[in-house]
Design a protein around this nucleic acid. Structure first.
Length: 374
DNA sequence: AATACCTCCAACCGCCCTACC
DNA sequence: TGGTAGGGCGGTTGGAGGTAT
């Protein structure tokens, strides 16, 4: 409270990052590891506030970030998780390890919201009982009904996550195994530097990046580093030796990531001890038909806010359930890029559900009422 | 071709939480 | 125990590029 913004200082640069700034930041982090952001501007000479440096790193420079179009499966996961968690983008992002919360948030705001609205209005055309925002406020939900819905939602989230976790393990490699022995080039498809249009996969970039492509992949980054160090009149003392091997850089990155996790202060409780592999790239269920996908999409028809609309006698119980789910999700963190992939608490909770059939009736309820609930 | 409007997303802002002193 | 610093998170904004007129 009342704390002055960290960027109030005169002389602090704002706006888009330049390649030079990125290089300086990356070099510094390679050497010192992420964390202690306060000291980054001082030590690097960057005219940026610490926050800006951290954001730039976590959202764009950090290895393992995938950019470009979201897959259908990623979309579905986001929709499901958003329905379950609300706008807790960091928690949602923890289940899409290659995506940043900012990315997911932007995608939700610019694409998914509209898409859902469109679909909902489409449904409204068929069912006048429905409401555009997915709530059915005019039709008070009977006591216990919302609870069933909540359970159904949770179950559907489980299903979605199970799908995501079980289908596309190989793609997990890019974020979970890089730390051990991959060379920097191996990270090419998944590493992005700032606005350098990095996407090597044309299929993931339909909308042209309007920002200039000042580096497109790690090779370019390495070249940039090299060229920059050759050309720059004043090379930071923290600049990485251009002869440093890619492997060294990779190790440095990953060690640093590790440090990052270890160094985290405030949110340590929510970021520590997580190693997750839920890459959903191309993870479409082989058995999912479009109709099923549609059903699945709309089976998440009650958001936490919907639930709150009808809270009454069972409120405590609902709060308990919600708290359980909430706590589980809160325990999730940004993916640890180390190779170990222990199941998170939530995944255990999801996957250890030994009696999936017990929820079938709930699913049926949800699907039957799907249009009406949305 | 020029202009206005729209879309998208990188970056910023402010609040909050936790650790540390 | 209270104050402060560091960092995380979600909401919002500004500007560049795209599209419509």
């Amino acid at each position: 409270m009342g704390r002055p913004p960290c960027c109030d200082k005169v002389g602090v640069k704002k706006g888009p990052w330049t390649p030079e700034e990125d290089i300086i930041l990356v070099s510094y982090i390679q050497e010192h590891g992420p964390g202690n952001w306060r000291s980054v501007p001082t030590n690097t000479g960057l005219l940026r506030c610490s926050k800006s440096c951290r954001l730039r790193w976590t959202n764009y420079l950090r290895p393992g970030i995938k950019r470009g179009n979201f897959t259908d499966h990623e979309e579905k996961m986001i929709i499901h998780l958003q329905a379950l968690l609300g706008n807790r983008w960091a928690a949602i992002a923890s289940y899409l390890p290659q995506r940043t919360d900012n990315d997911i948030k932007n995608y939700w705001n610019t694409h998914l919201k509209k898409k859902l609205k469109k679909l909902q209005t489409g449904l409204d055309g068929h069912d006048h009982h429905n409401h555009q925002d997915g709530n059915s406020h005019d039709q008070p939900i009977s006591k216990g009904q919302w609870e069933r819905r909540l359970q159904t939602d949770i179950h559907m989230a489980k299903q979605a996550l199970c799908e995501a976790l079980s289908i596309d393990k190989p793609n997990v490699i890019s974020t979970t195994t890089v730390s051990h022995d991959l060379h920097l080039q191996d990270l090419k498809p998944s590493i992005n530097i700032g606005n350098y249009n990095i996407n090597d996969n044309p299929s993931t970039s339909t909308r042209p990046h309007h920002t200039s492509t000042y580096a497109s992949n790690t090779e370019n980054i390495a070249k940039l580093l090299e060229n920059w160090m050759k050309n720059s009149p004043k090379v930071s003392a923290h600049q990485t030796n251009s002869d440093q091997t890619n492997a060294d850089q990779t190790n440095s990155f990953n060690n640093n990531n590790n440090n990052d996790n270890d160094n985290k202060g405030g949110a340590t409780a929510t970021t520590r001890g997580r190693s997750m592999s839920t890459s959903s790239e191309g993870a479409h269920s082989a058995t999912t038909t479009p109709d099923q996908a549609f059903d699945s999409l709309f089976s998440f028809n009650s958001s936490p806010s919907d639930v709150s609309q009808s809270m009454s006698v069972d409120e405590n119980n609902a709060n308990f359930i919600a708290d359980q789910a909430s706590c589980l999700f809160q325990d999730e963190s940004k993916p640890n890029l180390e190779g170990q992939v222990p199941l998170s608490l939530l995944e255990k909770w999801l996957l250890d559900d030994a009696a999936p059939h017990a929820h079938e009736d709930l699913i049926n309820i949800s699907l039957e009422n799907g249009a009406g609930l949305f």
